[in-house]
Write a protein that binds this DNA or RNA. Sequence first.
DNA 1: AATTTGAGAAACCGAATAGTTGCATATATA
DNA 2: TATATATGCAACTATTCGGTTTCTCAAATT
Lengths: 104, 104
Amino acid sequence: MRRDIFQAIADPTRRAIITLIALQAMTPNAIAEHFDTTRQAVSKHLRILTECELVNQQRQGREIYYSLEMKKMKEIDKWLEQFRKIWEDRFDNLDKLLARMQKK
Amino acid sequence: MRRDIFQAIADPTRRAIITLIALQAMTPNAIAEHFDTTRQAVSKHLRILTECELVNQQRQGREIYYSLEMKKMKEIDKWLEQFRKIWEDRFDNLDKLLARMQKK
DNA sequence: AATTTGAGAAACCGAATAGTTGCATATATA
DNA sequence: TATATATGCAACTATTCGGTTTCTCAAATT
């Protein structure tokens, strides 16, 4: 059972949940209302998100509020870092090329 | 058959391939040498990466050079954008909070 | 012309995935 | 206390995934 952020965000429903709870914590029931699946299915997604520490739980009576763990989201950003350097370099080169072309 | 960037980068081997060809184009055989799988398995990964337009092919005789399509990589970055705003905001708030605490 | 080499496609297999239904448990409410 | 509600867990199922082996095809080499 692989369990990392990349596998977590592979599922579109999970990405939607992430976006949903990014701004404010929500209960499984409230989340499920936004989707065309059962509450249990959402619960399963939340378990996966919890297992890779992408969400935090905060119990309040019998309700559990799930919120997004931004620290973990940054890990995706960190992985992208290596490519960002490359695509910025290429952009720079294109810039220089265009500058050289204008000189002529 | 879902086929989008997020599903593409979910597999660790595929992420490794992406990193591998980010700097220079490579043939399937050359790529396969870096992994503990068959060339055919790598070929399958390349097909998936091709299907979601994450890689470009450039034929040269009987060899095919695969390179990374940075434009597509930026789509991940674009998705992260919404969260980046949030985590920067939170960081700002933390900053202000710390400043306020120091005043007292 | 015959052989080797690089690559993709097809068929198959076991494991993982995402969903369902049904059940258990704890908290709130009547 | 009895009932309603919020949640999680287990068992089952169809589908997808990642890998293998076998094969075909086209380009290079002998």
